[in-house]
Design a protein around this nucleic acid. Structure first.
Length: 268
DNA sequence: ATGGTAGTCGCACTA
């Protein structure tokens, strides 16, 4: 069975519901994972999704900040979320798709980590590292590694490879690309033998971005991007991905998010 | 080296 999964940090789903509708029309994904919905579950624009044919919603909201959601044309068998670092933040939600060989989709919004990459003066950076360490510990404790059919997507707020940023050298001390974050992300990946799907399709020597800052004068010309959004699969699904698309053009839509959708087609 | 933009909620905080 073929399934198409999209992930997108939307930076307010209510403000940008028209962009979401346009993406759904153009790409017709089976499942859309959103981060930074920035609203509580009651304020989630459920009717717009239903109108577009997406009847199944798993929403973990929070007033004003963060918030993750999974909307789908395929029913869910199960919905779960984990309160990483026990702060009550809405940063993780997971669903089991109700298909013949079920797959579990994890949708993450990892803390951005603030500006200073120093845990002694920046609590937000400490929180980010703690969050990733908990991810590594949690996935290491999952049993039957090779049998688990799992997909992990989301805004992980780390660009791990040299060519996941516009300038490796200039970003070594910038939060999202520091060695301590990259090491921790490698630990998370190793914790469950995760496979970096985006890099299955684009070699590590090629630049690859999913985010361009709002603060740049001309994001397109300057092209100072970073790959903060990710799609990973477990070894059981290593051969499932058939295509990967980063919709860079959407950064040029009117009133865009600073992140663009990443879309993967899989044969599961 | 600095400051630049965006969203939510309310005039600060997070990104």
């Amino acid at each position: 069975m073929k399934i198409k999964i999209a992930t997108w940090n939307i930076n307010s789903v209510r403000l940008r519901i028209n962009l979401v509708e346009r993406l759904l029309l153009e790409e017709k994904p089976d499942v859309l994972c959103l981060q930074e919905i920035k609203c509580v579950a009651d304020a989630f624009p459920a009717k717009a999704f239903e109108k577009a044919g997406y009847m199944h919603h798993a929403v973990l909201g929070q007033k004003g900040y963060h918030g993750v959601a999974i909307v789908s044309r395929i029913p869910f068998k199960k919905v779960e979320s984990r309160d990483f670092c026990e702060k009550g933040d809405a940063r993780h939600i997971a669903v089991d798709l109700d298909i013949k060989d079920p797959i579990r989709i994890h949708n993450f919004y990892v803390p951005a980590g603030g500006d200073e990459p120093d845990v002694t003066i920046n609590d937000k950076f400490a929180h980010k590292l703690d969050f990733m360490q908990e991810m590594a510990d949690w996935y290491a404790s999952h049993k039957t590694k090779t049998k688990n059919r799992m997909v992990l997507v989301g805004d992980l707020n780390v660009a791990p490879l040299e060519h996941d940023v516009w300038s490796h050298k200039q970003l070594l001390k910038v939060v999202s690309h520091t060695p301590v974050e990259v090491d921790l992300m490698e630990k998370v990946i190793a914790s469950h033998d995760w496979i970096d799907v985006m890099r299955q399709f684009v070699p590590a020597e090629e630049k690859l971005y999913s985010w361009w800052s709002y603060r740049a004068r001309d994001w397109d010309t300057a092209d100072r991007g970073r790959r903060l959004d990710h799609v990973w699969v477990t070894p059981a699904l290593a051969k499932a991905p058939q295509s990967m698309t980063i919709r860079r053009d959407i950064r040029g839509w009117e009133k865009p998010s600073d992140h663009v959708p990443v879309i993967v087609e899989m044969d599961v």
